[in-house]
Design a protein around this nucleic acid. Structure first.
Lengths: 223, 223
DNA sequence: TGTACATCAGTGAACGCGCGTTCACTGATGTAC
DNA sequence: TGTACATCAGTGAACGCGCGTTCACTGATGTAC
């Protein structure tokens, strides 16, 4: 894993370079072991080729390192969402592409996604800001869709529903990888269209309508 | 926490009673601490009022205890879903009630839900059977809905989408409790109806349709 | 040009902690003779 | 009726382990005089 050549000590003003190396090592360990528990300061230090106390030169404690990892994950997700929707012809396609990119990112980086979006909520929770950031992304697209007339209603509500939708797909597949899942892209698109249509319909099915009436109402929607 | 009276030793044939006490203590600890890490054999033993090695009289190791906890959680979830849909007038209402009960159970028992549905997948994973069981539940209801004519399509596909939907709502609220979530029941019902309508519509929105055409199509669905 | 010194990047060894697990044991109690 | 014994429920002390964290330190290198 770690390179064989013993690490060269950084020249005079370049001590900060180690910070980046430590961060990268933590990210890589997370990817390779698929387990947050495996990211110990000892493991990170070994991978960088440095002694454990060196980490403390750049991070106050282990939590600070994990916080930095969260930030990095967020930036990568942010970038992925931005790139995905860059070429979209309209806001609806942008939303679709962003949703797909979100799910793809989560499944390509399951343990990274886990620590920012599936972890136990902690007091200060830097991951909350991350969530807010990702949510802001969706919110922008939803607002644009409303502007276009594609969607209607409260943008925050709509965005929360969509977010819960993509999170459900991503996190369930991460937690239950052995389950016989259908191909990702098709599954996502099916859910995306269903939710999109359902939200666009702007209606609810009242409780106690009776099966026949429910069927009749839903039938009227069928192509 | 633990009762003050020192625990009485079980009479001759009743040694197995301790198993139940240990299991209950683990469940309670999970609920009270909201953290799987806090469930150590020492903490469990202290809560029961027994020495640590006593746990080994009934569980091969810690993992066996955790597996038993998973089973217990599943049984409780199973019961909650069954009770929720017992009085439903038809399959569609049954599905709605089950979905609501699922989300309610998860949020009332967040750490229990976490260990069975949000944990890292492990090799043998008894939680997978749990997932299959819960999924079977949804599948039954979906199949009944198809029988009624309320839904159309592949029951497995439909059930997976619905499962991902309720899981998304539940797990995101568990992971991000500080987020300004709307009231649970209304939020669930909104998503449930949207997904229901969307799935019932049995159609997809092709990529590259153009915003105007997408808007026109969705407009035709509005009440 | 030489040298003393401050700074900087990083180290080695040790700390206490809580954990899961093991092992030899204790002492009450039902049962056989 | 008394007693030896097997069984059962549970204990106390210790084990090694990996962890985060701390502290006094080393040794290379740029800089001031």
């Amino acid at each position: 894993m770690a390179s064989d050549a013993p690490r060269k000590r950084a020249p005079r003003g370049q001590g900060a370079a180690l910070r980046g190396e430590v961060l990268t090592a933590a990210m890589d360990l997370l990817r390779e072991t698929s387990s947050e528990e495996s990211v110990s300061l000892r493991a990170v230090a070994a991978r960088v080729g440095v002694s454990v106390p060196s980490i403390y030169l750049h991070f106050a404690d282990k939590q600070a390192l994990l916080d930095a990892v969260c930030e990095e994950v967020f930036e990568q997700l942010h970038r992925a969402l931005k790139e995905a929707s860059a070429d979209a012809p309209d806001a609806f396609e942008a939303l679709r592409q962003q949703g797909m990119a979100y799910v793809r990112f989560a499944l390509a980086n399951p343990e990274h996604y886990r620590i920012v979006m599936m972890g136990s909520p902690s007091g200060h929770d830097p991951a909350d800001e991350i969530a807010s950031g990702a949510f802001g992304h969706v919110l922008d697209s939803v607002t644009a869709c409303i502007g276009l007339g594609v969607l209607e209603g409260d943008p925050v509500d709509l965005a929360l529903q969509l977010w819960a939708g993509v999170h459900g797909i991503a996190s369930l597949r991460i937690a239950k990888p052995m389950f016989p899942w259908p191909p990702l892209e098709d599954f996502f698109d099916g859910t995306f269209c269903a939710v999109g249509i359902g939200l666009a319909a702007q209606t609810r099915i009242p409780v106690g309508l009776g099966a026949d009436e429910v069927t009749a109402r839903l039938n009227s929607l069928r192509a």
